[in-house]
């Protein structure tokens, strides 16, 4: 008894100090600072665009969001309505083309292709993602668009009864939102595919095998297991591609001939997006009116891409973690 007491008296547990050393605290401080810098830069971009755009908001008021013209020297004749419409129209055209191809390519990579060819196909996609936007622009302008004019003509001739394919201004098909959208779609596909592939590849193999064991064909298995499981990845990849498409500037500036109008006829020559407009007009914008108006357009683009991208990353994260999927 006495011995036990003595031992317990000696063996008082040593208190473990979880306090960090000075160097560790400095390390944590610096690393957190680096994390904060990203937040600060992102915030500052928005802040400075807003500050620089104030003159144009004062000049134009709310008509900045409803006007379709671009005449910064005259009050109430400058607005982003046509630009914003064009930005979304081009993005939607590009997505309609890019998303199905991305889903199919991602399925090809995860479910169909043999491992021997998977590496080369991934390399092709990575290379497509590495080609600069400028190169896509000039290649699309000089090579792809002339070759696709026939497709535009054919769509207008055979599906002209659908309003978006009609061409009331006559048969002018070059530099149209549709043809530009095709090139932008090509640029989006690698990004969207890699997001979808990552999510598809996390489909639980047990469920896939169960679907096959119950007699399902491979496509049936994909439809009832892989696609429902990867729905978050499909939505997230699509939103990410939407953000990319909205921000595409240089290629669209080369591909699309600038026109200020809200027109649903996507096969017709002419259109505009915010990014392309800034790239086109920055060089000759004057300090008093032109630049603030461009900054205002930039702010609108900033806010819309930020919303789309935060949403996309949230959806992708959720689908990656497997939350929202019942197993």
């Amino acid at each position: 008894m006495a011995v036990a007491q003595e031992i317990s008296g000696v063996d008082v547990p040593r208190s473990i100090r979880s306090e960090r050393t000075h160097s560790d605290r400095a390390f944590r401080f610096v690393a957190s600072g680096a994390g904060l810098v990203t937040l600060i830069i992102l915030f500052l971009i928005g802040l400075f665009l807003l500050l620089r755009a104030i003159p144009t908001f004062r000049e134009n008021g709310l008509s900045f969001f409803t006007s379709t013209g671009w005449n910064p020297a005259v009050p109430h004749q400058t607005g982003v309505a046509a630009l914003l419409f064009g930005t979304f129209a081009l993005a939607v055209i590009a997505l309609v083309l890019a998303v199905p191809v991305s889903i199919l390519t991602a399925l090809c990579l995860t479910e169909y292709i043999t491992p021997r060819f998977r590496g080369p196909l991934v390399t092709v996609l990575d290379l497509l993602a590495a080609v600069p936007s400028l190169i896509y622009g000039i290649w699309g302008f000089f090579f792809l668009q002339p070759h696709l004019l026939g497709l535009s003509e054919w769509l207008a001739a055979n599906f002209g009864f659908i309003p978006i394919f009609s061409t009331p201004d006559g048969p002018y098909f070059s530099q149209s939102p549709f043809l530009s959208g095709v090139v932008v779609a090509l640029m989006l596909t690698p990004t969207a595919t890699s997001v979808m592939r990552e999510v598809f590849s996390q489909t639980p193999p047990g469920e896939k095998e169960a679907a096959l064991a119950l007699g399902g064909s491979r496509w049936r298995m994909i439809r009832i297991v892989v696609i429902p499981f990867g729905r978050g990845g499909i939505i997230g990849g699509t939103m990410l591609a939407l953000g990319r498409a909205m921000g595409e500037s240089i290629s669209v500036a080369i591909l699309l001939s600038a026109a200020f109008r809200i027109s649903p006829h996507i096969l017709e020559t002419g259109g505009n997006t915010i990014g392309a407009h800034i790239a086109n007009r920055f060089g000759d914008a004057d300090h008093a009116f032109g630049l603030p108006a461009l900054m205002g357009a930039g702010l609108v683009l900033y806010v819309s891409t930020l919303i789309v991208n935060v949403g996309a990353s949230e959806v992708i994260r959720r689908s990656r973690s497997g939350a929202g999927v019942e197993i």
């Binding site: 994390g35 904060l36 990203t38 937040l39 830069i41 992102l42 500052l44 971009i45 400075f48 665009l49 620089r52 990410l240 953000g243 990319r244 909205m246 921000g247 595409e248 500037s249 240089i250 990014g275 800034i278 790239a279 461009l294 900054m295 930039g298 683009l301 900033y302 891409t305 930020l306 789309v308 991208n309 935060v310 996309a312 990353s313 949230e314």
Partner: peptide, 20 residues
Amino acid sequence: PVRIFVDAMNGVPTILAGLF
């Protein structure tokens, strides 16, 4: 928040970096 905003910054059009 940093991870979310790094993703968001990845999507901010590069032309806006130039304007900034």
